[in-house]
Amino acid sequence: MTAIIELQAVNKVYKGGFQALDDVNLSIRRGEIFDLLGPNGAGKTTLISAVCGLLNISSGKILVDGLDSRLSYREVRRKLGLVPQELTTDAFETVWNTVSFSRGLFGKKRNPAFIEELLKSLSLWDKKDSKLMMLSGGMKRRVLIAKALSHEPKILFLDEPTAGVDVELRKSMWQLVGDLRDAGVTIILTTHYIEEAEEMADRIGVINGGKLLLVEEKKAIMDKLGSKQLIFDLKSPVPEIPSALDKYSLNLSEDGYQLTYSYEQKKTGSEIPELIRDLQSEAIFFKDLYSRQKSLEDIFVNLVQNS
C-alpha cells in the first residue's frame, strides 16, 4: 500500500520550550485504519493538529498524498476531515445548517441530497432541524462526524471519537469507521480505549512524550510483544512458592489460591508439561487451569512505562 500521509522529522516546540513532537517520522498507508495510542499529553492531538494545519510545526515536513501540507494547503486540506476531541459546536445552529456550512467552508457546492444521506447514515435525520444545544453528547459527536464528512474527505481524523460515549453508540461508531474504511477512506484515530484499537485498527502507533515509540501491524504487536499467562486455580492455598519452582518465575495470589505463569507464546516448548509435573511433585494440586493473551493495554502500559 502507498503512503497517503508522511511525516518527516516533524518537531513541535511550544514557546515555553515544551517539545510536543520530537522528531516524528510516520507513514500512514492509503485505506488503512491507523490508531495512535498514548497517555494524556503524549502528543496525539498535536500530531493530528500538525497535519490538519491547526498549528505551525517547528521543523520537518508533512506530505499528504504527495503534497506538502504547507505549500499546497488547499489541495491537502480538501482531502482531510477532522473530528476534534472536544464537543465544539455552535450551540444555536441547527444540525442541517452546521453540516451544510462545513461543506461550503471546504469549497464544495451545495448538495442537499448528499447531506440528507449523510445525516441518515448517522441517525441524525430526525434531528436535522434541532439546535445543537438540544442534543445529547453522543448526538453532538455524530454531528461533528457529519461535519467532518460533509466535504467527502479521503482521510478522516478522529480524535478520541468515543470519549464520553455510551457502549451502544461506541459500537455503532466502530461500525461507521469500518464502513468508511470499506468506502476507501483512510482513518487515523486516537483513543484511550485499548479495546477500540484492538477492535478496529490495522496498525498501531504508540506515542509518548512527543516521541513515536512504535508503529506496527496490530497483529504483529500482539505476536511480538504479547505474552500469554497460564493460571492455575489451586485446590488448597499455598503459603509460598517452593524453591524448586523458582525457574518458572511464578506469581502467587495474595490468598494463595492462584498461581500465574507467564510465558512467551513462541518460545515455549516443553515447559508447560514440565511445570505441571513439578507442581504435582511439590504436592500442589489445581482444580482448574486456563490461559489468557496479554492485552494490548498491557503492552501499551509496558511500552509507555519503559519509554
Binding site: 494545519g53 486540506r77 476534534p84 472536544e86 465544539t88 459546536t89 455552535d90 462545513s102 467552508l105
Partner: peptide
C-alpha cells in the same frame, strides 16, 4: 466555542 478549528483546517 472552539469551532475555530474548522475555519483553520479548511482549504
Amino acid at each position: 466555542s472552539g469551532t475555530i478549528y474548522e475555519i483553520l483546517s479548511a482549504p
